[in-house]
Amino acid sequence: MKKGELVEALAQATGESQATAARHLDAFIDVISQQLSSGDEVTITGFGSFKASKRAARTGRNPSTGESMDIPESTAVRFTPGAKLKAAVNGQ
């Protein structure tokens, strides 16, 4: 499902227009992004939690040439699904 399809499904589920659903989805994404970039965790009970975690700098290898290369430190976003989401995906 792409973003446009998600907006359409949200609009149908809520009875709102697609424009309103798109604004709500964009606001949701912005709030989560802001919280993660400030170092906070976002937990939605039953759905899951989003957390930013640091990856240390390390040395890797270029797979095509075999040369060593430095990979800089970065921040990754981790998602841990909640119990209700796991149950829904597993058909329970």
Rank of each mutant, 00 (worst) to 15 (best):
K2I: 08
K3Q: 08
T20Y: 01
S17I: 03
A13H: 08
S33Q: 03
A27R: 15
K84V: 03
R23H: 02
Q18E: 01
R55H: 12
I29H: 04
I32G: 12
F28S: 14
A56P: 09
Q12G: 11
L36I: 11
F50Q: 13
Q18Y: 00
K51Q: 11
D30P: 08
I71F: 03
L10M: 14
R78E: 10
Q18L: 02
I71Q: 12
T14N: 13
E16N: 05
G39L: 04
I29D: 07
T59S: 11
I44K: 12
A83L: 04
D70C: 00
L25T: 07
F47D: 08
A22S: 11
A19K: 13
A83E: 07
I71M: 06
R58T: 09
P63E: 09
S68G: 05
K84I: 00
E41I: 09
S38V: 02
A21T: 04
Q12M: 06
K3H: 08
T59C: 02
K3T: 01
D26P: 08
S74R: 15
G91N: 14
G66M: 06
T80M: 10
L36Q: 15
V77H: 03
K54S: 09
S64R: 15
V77N: 07
L85R: 09
F50K: 15
P72N: 08
G66H: 04
L10Q: 03
R78G: 11
G82A: 04
G91T: 07
A11Q: 01
A9K: 08
Q35E: 15
A57I: 00
Q92T: 10
E73Y: 02
T59R: 12
G91L: 04
T14H: 03
I29E: 15
F28H: 10
D30F: 06
E41R: 05
A88N: 07
A87K: 06
T65C: 11
V31Y: 09
S74T: 14
E67F: 03
Q92L: 01
V42A: 08
R61M: 07
Q34E: 12
I71K: 12
G39E: 02
T75I: 02
K84L: 01
L6N: 10
D30A: 15
T65E: 11
M1P: 13
G46L: 11
S68I: 01
S38H: 02
S49C: 05
V77I: 14
T20I: 00
T45C: 07
T65I: 07
L85K: 06
L36F: 10
V89T: 04
Q35I: 03
A56S: 14
G66T: 08
R23G: 12
S68E: 06
G82M: 00
A22K: 13
A19H: 06
F79E: 06
G91F: 00
L36E: 11
A52I: 02
